[in-house]
Write a protein that binds this DNA or RNA. Structure first.
Lengths: 331, 331
DNA sequence: CGACAAAAATGAAACGTTACATGAAATGGA
DNA sequence: TCCATTTCATGTAACGTTTCATTTTTGTCG
């Protein structure tokens, strides 16, 4: 008597087709099988609506065709774009994706890594904030935007070149006195190169610059004070501002608005990421665009690369400049 | 001789601790075990850094603590918010999430369902566009925004009430002649109730209204023409517009700008979803806010509910009105 | 101190696959 | 016609768990 409510197994198919278990396995995996047998098995599979059980496969093969993505959330447009493109890059290779939204919580990041290992994922791609994150020896890990030590490749856009490009574009637009504003964790170390690149660019183009750097905060007020302090007779001391992210650029745009400064008439504003909210009228900032689809592709490609020796410690992908930012739709 | 590079198993732990396999299993699962044994096993687990293999568990238990989410993408802010909140709701219950971005492709939707079944997921939550989607008998399915037939519960916001609310708010703002604009698939049938609700609201408040409905298109031009046709001497025939989504509202805002109409001075604009890009200055539309966290929670709660009989065919969650939309950050 | 009951540890079977050693059948050459 | 050789189906072991029937240990009481 067969169980009623449970899914058919290979054994059921074998019985139905009157062949051996191994024969069904071969048919399912496309291995050579005599035609008469193949046809019988295929009919039985159809009839029973048989689906292979990946858990049994995974157990046997110690290989699960699953990759975990650790990312703070899917709501921030940059993370959303990364998530989407990584999912697509995995799909292309018949891999599944376990989504792990960490909410910037180091504890959750660590827990998700345990969970991923218990799930015997074939690898992990992570954009993480835990400075002491322990990754397993036996699970390949690709870090985004963060160098985590030997054996763990980091994929990032060319942040240094991006900073440099920002300075050059501001210079091209006729700026003389510029500012660099940054929030966010210093732990995410690759993006910190934006600052160094920007300085280099300013120096080579003869721009005078000032910096306002906040660690681990994403707050309005300090920047607002900073900008206010640099106002004199209703005029801002800067004719160009480089914000470390587009998100910050949006906030700064609001502040400038409050201070009576127009963009781009009074001051140039340039962000970073290439992400822009859809459909607004008044966003006249520029941005340094990260190649999100290429970053996604590279993460997946590196992660699944067989040859460990071919995994470089850092891969930098080229950035581009865009006026007004690209929209989410085009990403 | 033990294999070097492979993860330790329960057998390894048992040998290390000098106990039987079953004892280790009990310790791992928190079943009663004598203290001396428990301590020895825990030490061995520590020493070997043992992690249970969910694939073996899943195979044995025919239960995987994994749920698949079918969603077009993670880039559209509404989908992004849903994805995030569903992930969190699952996490709270120690469930994992398999992300399946379908890109609106019916074929991919169907393929992902097969994949999910092969992965023996405990259930599927889907916001899908395939009108002929075949879901498995033995895998619970919760549909978002779409009634898919008996046995498949649908979770949605109260779209009818939302449409009604939009009409009432426009009336409150003093509008007399209003318009309803819609794009998008008629297959996603629950949101279509926005139209009916809006009509009802207009009738009860004595608003005259016009509708422009495009099926399965997400295009500018037709709406632009529609609006142009309703211009006379630089004045728009409508003093209020209800757009079926915030996304469309953003596009319409741009069109109105082109036509020299200001929002909200010349015409009121109201969208739907409660999603707004962060940090823009000029977005003065209102919106009907979907309770995304509650929708997410309800989907998960319904999906994992044991009692099949307690699964209603449709769950409507209340909408609210917001001026200017809520920002992504607050969602 | 021996016998019995209760408690607790043991180890084999099973979950659904894949891989491999085995054996049967079919083919071809002499 | 018969043997050698290839081809291909078969069935069993193994993957790492959980479960359960069994055996061992412990404790109690007469």
């Amino acid at each position: 008597m067969k169980k009623e409510n449970s899914a058919p197994t290979m054994k059921d198919v074998a019985k139905e087709a009157g062949v051996a278990l191994g024969t069904v396995s071969k048919v399912v995996n496309g291995l050579p099988v005599g035609d008469s047998y193949r046809i019988r098995v295929e009919k039985a599979i159809q009839k029973l609506n048989y689906q292979v059980n990946s858990y049994a496969q995974g157990l046997k093969a110690n290989r699960t065709y699953t990759v975990a993505l650790l990312i703070p959330n899917t709501v921030d447009p940059f993370y959303a774009a990364l998530t989407y493109h990584i999912n697509m890059a995995l799909l292309k290779r018949k891999y599944r994706m376990l989504l792990c939204a960490t909410d910037f919580d180091p504890k959750q990041e660590q827990e998700y890594i345990s969970m991923a290992q218990q799930n015997k994922v074939d690898g992990i791609i992570g954009l993480t904030y835990n400075p002491a994150l322990i990754v397993a020896e036996n699970t390949p890990f690709i870090a985004i935007d963060r160098s985590m030590g030997p054996g763990i490749p980091c994929v990032a856009c060319d942040n240094f070149a991006g900073g440099q490009l920002a300075a050059e574009k501001l210079a091209d637009l006729g700026c003389k006195n510029v500012a660099f504003l940054r929030t966010g964790s210093a732990l995410i170390n690759e993006p910190n190169k934006r600052k160094a690149g920007f300085e280099t660019g300013c120096l080579s183009r003869g721009l005078s610059y000032e910096m306002k750097i906040l660690d681990d905060v994403d707050s309005y007020e300090e920047f607002e004070m900073f900008l206010s302090e640099h106002m004199e007779n209703g005029k801002l001391a800067f004719d160009g501002i480089f914000c470390v992210t587009d998100r910050l650029a949006c906030l700064v745009l609001k502040m400038l608005h409050k201070l009576g400064q127009r963009v781009p008439e009074d001051v140039q504003l340039i962000g970073f990421d290439g992400i822009r909210a859809f459909g607004t009228l008044d966003y006249h900032c520029s941005t340094i665009v990260q190649p999100v689809p290429e970053i996604a592709e590279m993460c997946v490609e590196l992660l699944l690369r067989e040859n460990m020796l071919m995994k470089p410690p850092l891969v930098c992908l080229p950035v581009t400049y865009a006026y007004g930012g690209t929209t989410l739709e085009t990403q």
